[in-house]
């Protein structure tokens, strides 16, 4: 099901972020949102994920139990190994059943090119490797909707390109509805199939491109 945003209204204090805002994200496509910093892109993702509530309006087509989110930062637990960080996604009962999901974790780590780091702690990995773990976590979680908030912004150019290529490879195998937010046009063009360009606040869609 597509994600349908209707008549969205959201403000912080006196500042209106969204006013009578409407948008549709197509199912199983990568939609990119391009816009200046602080334009409300992250707010839109937070509204879609349920981390924030709209003041009025509706967002339909999202099952709150079925969302993955790749944040700007990897948000890994520093006191848990990579494997333990990924194990967090599974219910305790299912883990106890003869190591269920361990093969899923291993498979996903291999897919993101981190086959041998399962027992390392996040601080023993480079920034790029940590972001790969975050990508692995997003795909390991059985979601219909994947939200991405500038996940490549802190990485250098070549690492960013490699990670985008890897991301597309994984997405081809496991297609989900993706909403990808960035202020970097190159990143958006490499990844997205539909691009929405946002104005500054209150947000309006300046342009919609289908690639």
């Amino acid at each position: 099901m597509s994600v349908i945003i209707s008549k969205l209204y959201k403000k912080y204090g006196d500042e209106i972020i969204f006013e009578d805002f409407n948008l549709v994200f197509e199912k199983n496509k990568i939609s990119g949102i391009l816009g200046p910093s602080g334009a409300g892109k992250t707010t839109l993702l937070n509204l879609c994920s349920g981390l924030e509530k709209p003041d009025s309006g509706t967002i339909e087509g999202i099952n709150p139990q079925s969302i993955s989110y790749i944040f700007q930062e990897p948000r890994l637990l520093p006191w848990r190994t990579v494997r333990e960080n990924l194990r967090l996604l599974f219910k305790e009962k299912s883990i106890r059943k003869a190591g269920a999901h361990e093969s899923d974790i291993d498979g996903m780590l291999k897919l993101v090119g981190l086959g041998s780091v399962g027992d390392l702690y996040p601080q023993e990995l480079s920034g790029g490797m940590r972001q790969r773990v975050a990508i692995a976590r997003a795909f390991l979680y059985p979601s219909e909707l994947l939200l991405m908030d500038e996940p490549f912004s802190s990485l250098d150019y070549s690492l960013k390109n490699r990670l985008i290529e890897d991301f597309l490879k994984i997405w081809e195998q496991d297609k989900r509805t993706v909403i990808f937010v960035s202020h970097n046009e190159d990143e958006i063009r490499q990844l997205a199939q539909v691009i929405f360009t946002f104005s500054d606040k209150p947000v309006q869609i300046l342009k919609k491109e289908t690639l």
């Binding site: 994920s49 349920g50 981390l51 139990q65 969302i67 993955s68 989110y69 944040f71 930062e73 948000r75 637990l77 006191w79 848990r80 333990e84 967090l88 996604l89 219910k91 305790e92 976590r137 979680y141």
Partner: peptide
């Protein structure tokens, strides 16, 4: 709070939120 948001998104069990996020 960012770790707690991550746990909320991924529907991490309450017992794990306490043992793996709050306690450490």
């Amino acid at each position: 709070k960012k770790l707690l948001q991550m746990a909320k998104i991924y529907n991490v069990e309450q017992s794990k939120i306490i043992s793996d996020i709050y306690l450490p």
